[in-house]
Design a binder for these strands. Structure first.
Length: 569
DNA sequence: GTAGGGTTAG
């Protein structure tokens, strides 16, 4: 027997296998989107595609593989689809983010005289979350078909109205319900929390016979979001039962309020209390470490996730990438990034921002290309990173190309940050007029960052004329920022215009503006963070630091670095 | 006989 006959006999064999397998088993065993086609073929062959029970199962399977097209076409072949078939497909459209199509199918269902069930409306309310009028029509139908007292449907309606910010409507639904369960109460409390109305949220929560954990959690989250950490803390202490969401909400809340140390300490307390954290907790903690720049703790937390078998999901993944790159460990960030089993937009943004921050502009640009190849659509944040990197590296053409592709290929509208990047890119490259033109083309008012970038470019390229224009604007926007004065003073001094120097100095004095307070950097040694400023001699720890610094300067000089002393006045 | 549906942490 040659190879060809072996294959064809195998084929025959597998076909008959398919035919003999009970159809339900065949559908349930579909482990890939392709197998759905053979399952359907088998059903059509035996006319089982007319069976509503099987079709319901089949459509559900299609939905899980995102093959809603196949589900629809197979349903169209049916002579008498029943409510189960319609419901499966309506739900399928919602799951596949095609809400309008689910509504169209609903209309067809009514035309076919198939009576909707409560399941139909659960899906439909979800489908109408995007539009007020649609949702209201669905609500009307819910009344018309007698589901106005159905607890679960009414609860979804509360979600619907509160999502549109129509809290009074949501409350009306709540009040009109003849019976409510725990979910209903929590949903309504959560609606008030989302509306930042903690008084109403509290009042309602206190009317519950016993607050459930979800409600407590909801309130904690609300107070944290409003910056009321103390109340959140007291709720946390008061509540009788805490779950993982409670602990994670506290960690998240502290981070939200920039109290990262407390966030990390809650994490340790949680583990000491024997509560096992999950992926959400871990990514939150890692991100707190990133904000603090505490790489040692970050590593410890990273180790913890590895040792305890956490799934390296996109949240933990992007948090780790961000943490390592913010802590200066770009290599580790890259290592984590390339080993991620799944990467979403956030992971890509984290690594691109990391590369950009470390000055690897070309690599950041390459990453953008790679991400496009992997069909992840970049967003506005991605472009800010790439453009910033291009600016720092002076990659004018590349930056411009990326900027153009942002609007033409991705229809992303430039925000003020993108303009800021481009103005800086042009200014730094000496294309001062292009920068000015871009500023004038903006559809919103340029801010101080933009004029500041232009001013800085003018200093670099000695364009006093436009520097004065930028300075004038900056005097309106940020008249008390001493940096701009210093910049202009140094430019006048460079051209020996001492009278102008004196004039600007006089203005500074007149306004009582102090000299620029120096920017600071910090470094983590062991588990302590040390803060440095320019020309800082306060580190009495040892002279070694300064000796090392001298050596660094020397190496830099050897590498061809010329210190820019101009402009220091 | 079918569906697992509404609340809280990214």
């Amino acid at each position: 027997m040659n190879a060809l006959t072996t294959v064809s006999s195998l084929r025959r064999c597998s076909t008959s296998l398919l035919e003999n397998l009970p159809i339900l088993q065949l559908i349930k065993q579909c482990s890939s989107p392709k197998l759905l086609d053979s399952a359907l073929a088998a059903m059509v062959k035996t006319s089982q595609n007319q069976d509503c029970f099987f079709m319901n199962q089949f459509i559900t399977a299609c939905t899980s593989f995102n093959r809603i097209d196949l589900a629809l076409s197979s349903m169209t072949q049916m002579q008498e689809p029943n409510v189960f078939v319609y419901n499966a497909l309506i739900k399928g459209f919602v799951t596949c983010s095609l809400p309008i199509r689910s509504l169209e199918l609903y209309v067809r269902m009514l035309r076919d005289y198939v009576s909707p069930s409560s399941y139909t409306y659960s899906s439909l309310v979800k489908a109408s979350l995007f539009d007020r009028v649609v949702g209201e029509s669905v609500h009307a139908h819910i009344w018309k078909f007698g589901f106005c007292f159905h607890v679960q449907i009414q609860t979804t309606l509360i979600v619907f109205y509160s999502g549109l910010g129509r809290i009074e409507e949501a409350r009306k639904v709540f009040d009109e319900m003849p019976e409510r369960d725990e979910f209903t109460w929590t949903t309504m409390v959560s609606a008030y929390v989302r509306d930042f109305d903690m008084d109403s949220a509290n009042a309602l929560a206190n009317r519950m016979s016993e607050k459930n954990v979800a409600t407590w959690n909801c309130l904690i989250d609300g107070y944290m979001r409003l910056g009321n950490v103390e109340v959140a803390e007291s709720l946390f202490d008061q509540m009788p039962v805490k779950d993982i969401i409670t602990w994670t909400s506290m960690i998240k809340g502290y981070s939200f309020n920039k109290r990262y140390r407390e966030a990390i300490s809650v994490f340790y307390k949680m583990t000491e209390a024997g509560i096992v954290p999950d992926e959400v907790t871990m990514s939150t903690v890692i991100s707190a470490c990133a904000h603090l720049g505490v790489v040692e703790i970050g590593k410890e937390v990273h180790m913890y996730t590895v040792q305890n078998g956490f799934v390296l999901d996109v949240y933990i993944g992007s948090a780790l990438v961000d943490m390592y790159s913010k802590c200066g460990c770009l290599n580790r960030a890259l290592l984590v990034f390339f080993n991620l089993p799944e990467k979403n937009l956030f992971c890509w943004n984290a690594i691109i921002e990391g590369l950009a921050a470390h000055g690897y502009a070309r690599e950041a640009l390459r990453m953008l290309e790679k991400m496009e190849v992997e069909l992840i659509k970049p967003n506005a944040v991605t472009f800010v990173s790439v453009l910033t990197a291009s600016t720092h590296a002076g990659l004018v053409e590349e930056g411009q190309k990326v900027y153009r592709s942002m609007s033409s290929d991705y229809s992303i509208v430039s925000n003020i940050e993108h303009y800021g990047c481009m103005v800086a890119l042009f200014s730094k490259a000496g294309l001062i007029l292009e920068a000015l033109e871009l500023i004038e083309s903006m559809e919103f008012e340029p801010n101080a960052v933009i004029w500041g970038a232009l001013l800085d470019g003018c200093r670099l390229h000695k364009n006093l004329e436009i520097a004065e224009i930028a300075f004038k604007k900056l005097m309106v926007l940020e008249p008390r920022n001493s940096g701009y004065y210093s910049l202009l003073i140094s430019m006048y001094a460079g051209e020996n215009r001492w009278r102008d120097v004196a004039e600007v100095r006089g203005r500074m004095r007149g306004l009582g503006i102090e000299k620029l307070c120096p920017g600071t950097s910090w470094i983590e040694l062991g588990k302590r963070v040390h803060v440095f400023a320019a020309a800082d001699k306060s580190h009495s720890a040892s002279d070694e630091v300064y000796l090392l610094l001298d050596e660094v300067y020397e190496q830099m000089a050897l590498a061809g670095y010329v210190q820019e002393s101009e402009g220091v006045y």
